[in-house]
Design a protein around this nucleic acid. Structure first.
Lengths: 348, 348
DNA sequence: CTGAAAGCGCTTACAG
DNA sequence: CTGAAAGCGCTTACAG
């Protein structure tokens, strides 16, 4: 079964002797940053042999020497969640352009498991970490800080603002949503909040409350229901509670699209029409929400850009040099108008 | 700016001297497979010191010695595509359980770029590759085979069946769809095919044709339109062509959900109702198609299971031992009935 | 059961 | 501009 064993890759030594130079000369010739130290014809010869032999520098050996792996870990709570995949994609795109590979760890939301996977990444000697999983007070983050591992956060930020983060302007997002609804004449507006231990849940709720207050609108305690997770089922459950507590609401803004989808299900279960009886605004503009029934009005964030920026932040930290210590990048969200919001039929 | 430099991790040497034993003894004590060679009390002492120092074996150093990295590369054409994210998730889950990390490369569909990224993975000395990108005749795959790199395919298979693959039963899937439609009374059924250079496009088309024939139904040449890519826009364009060529169709089965979504858009543009005028069946059951308008009848495949199985196949290849050379795992798809299909109003 | 030693494939001061 | 040598942190035959 010889086919199982990969052909042993060519080593630098092989290239060097093929080109008739010393190992160290070959090493320099093949390193763009050192190539100028080598006579042009020699460098060309080495290059030619390397190509001929299909030489590829052994990354493990190189990093053992340099103590840098050019490996970056990305922690997400769920790869399959459409909010995170474009973030990952953005991260690995800009990292890849600089010769970095990214290991994505699908770590769930359980801190124990997260810590175990971070330890594995540390064993791999990743140069840095990008965390999309962080709670407002996060133990995994604390662990990374103790290890002095370069870290940047994306999508969610930590409370203490100890590390660079790339987030959407959650306060502005909710303000956009509420402004839109009030412009349509709504005054009794409810909110399905995300989990309070996540910055997005916390901040969007704050943004909602601030916007309501700015418009001088009443906001009874039970006009906000908090979902236990960013999932459809949790959104449906929270919606049921909200609708029971506040039957006269004419609009509801959800802290994310999945929650809004759950809300739509709850509306249907109660025989309420959207937007006829109740207008709904989501958050994130995830794929396909333009095709659901009704097409969802929502706050668009730029997850791919967030990934790009997070990678750039980490890169600048890793490559050092620039003293630019950007602590936080805040992206402007945008309201996308679709059919789940409409003017109220008859004001209460 | 000391915070930038990670604390230098503890080495095996440090652990050994802390425990008062030789390096090699410490190495054995920390390796579950070799631990039995060491006196229990010594092993325990080493373990204790390792824990105390926060020791984590340097994976790069170890793999330089063992020539195994426990790194697996996964190639996908698009991380953000909801068909692939659960595959990735499944792969990394079962690989992770065996101590392997996975590097996912978002390589697009351009062979040049794919090859470049494969080369990078080879430089990382991945132990094996899982390809979700393969065309029926694939140059990247050929490259891997030349390198004798262990490879397994997932979702898409190659024509020559040279490597193990995990796929859904595409023929059966289409048969399920057509059976359902004929049971509803449809006789004029069209197909929006996927790209012919992908096994899924090719096989599903074949499955569709076979099923039509089995039911003794006419299948004019232009009752099948081929989309240029698995994208909404391509689906819409193909649908427009199909509807123009075959205005009397009462049902259309699409080779995947994204194509079906494009078809739905085309229907709307032409003022046709689904399922009132035309029934639609998708393929894959990707997230949210149960919430679109109308909820999509579709063929469910198990992408997560496909990921699991692909990982298992690769693992058995890597760990050797078992002589089980499974060449192909074919998963049974399932028809999910929703509201985009209905009996025809008045048969032609 | 434990130790001493070689070596995996690189990079990089240090000489010349 | 080029070479010789040390060493990154491990694992594993080889002795004992």
């Amino acid at each position: 079964m010889q086919s199982r064993s990969p052909t042993r890759p060519a080593t630098l030594k092989a290239v060097a002797s093929a080109a008739g130079v010393h190992l160290s000369t070959a090493s320099r010739a093949l390193d763009p940053a050192k190539r100028h130290l080598i006579a042009a014809d020699v460098a060309a010869r080495v290059e030619a042999e390397a190509r001929k032999l299909g030489y590829r520098r052994d990354a493990a050996a190189a990093s053992l020497r340099t103590r840098r792996t050019r490996l970056v870990g990305v922690l997400v709570p769920d790869i399959a969640n459409p909010v995170f995949s474009p973030i990952i994609s953005g991260v690995s795109e800009t990292l890849g352009a600089q010769g970095y590979s990214t290991i994505v760890a699908d770590v769930g939301s359980e801190p124990k498991r997260q810590a175990a996977l971070v330890d594995e990444l540390i064993a791999r000697r990743v140069d840095g970490l990008i965390l999309a999983t962080v709670r407002r007070d996060d133990t995994v983050l604390r662990h990374c800080l103790e290890m002095k591992l370069p870290v940047v956060l994306v999508n969610r930020a930590d409370e203490a603002d100890r590390v660079p983060a790339v987030v959407s302007d959650d306060l502005l997002g909710m303000s956009l949503a509420v402004d839109h609804l009030t412009a349509l004449g709504h005054r009794r507006i409810g909110h399905i909040a995300g989990p309070a231990h996540l910055s997005t849940g916390h901040l969007r709720r704050q943004g909602f409350e601030a916007a309501m207050q700015r418009h001088g609108l009443a906001l009874p305690e039970n006009a906000i229901a908090t979902a236990t997770a960013y999932e459809r089922e949790a959104g449906e459950a929270a919606a049921m509670a909200l609708l029971a507590a506040q039957p006269t609401l004419t609009a509801i803004v959800a802290a994310n699209d999945l929650l809004a989808l759950g809300l739509l299900q709850a509306l249907r279960a109660r025989g309420l029409k959207c937007p006829g009886d109740i207008s709904v605004v989501g958050h994130n503009d995830m794929p396909l929400v333009d095709m659901i029934d009704p097409p969802l009005t929502t706050v668009r964030i730029g997850p791919r850009e967030m990934g790009h920026d997070a990678a750039r932040l980490l890169l600048s930290e890793l490559e050092g040099g620039a003293r630019t210590t950007v602590r936080r990048v805040i992206l402007k969200p945008e309201l996308i108008l679709r059919a789940s919001t409409a003017g109220i039929k008859k004001p209460h």
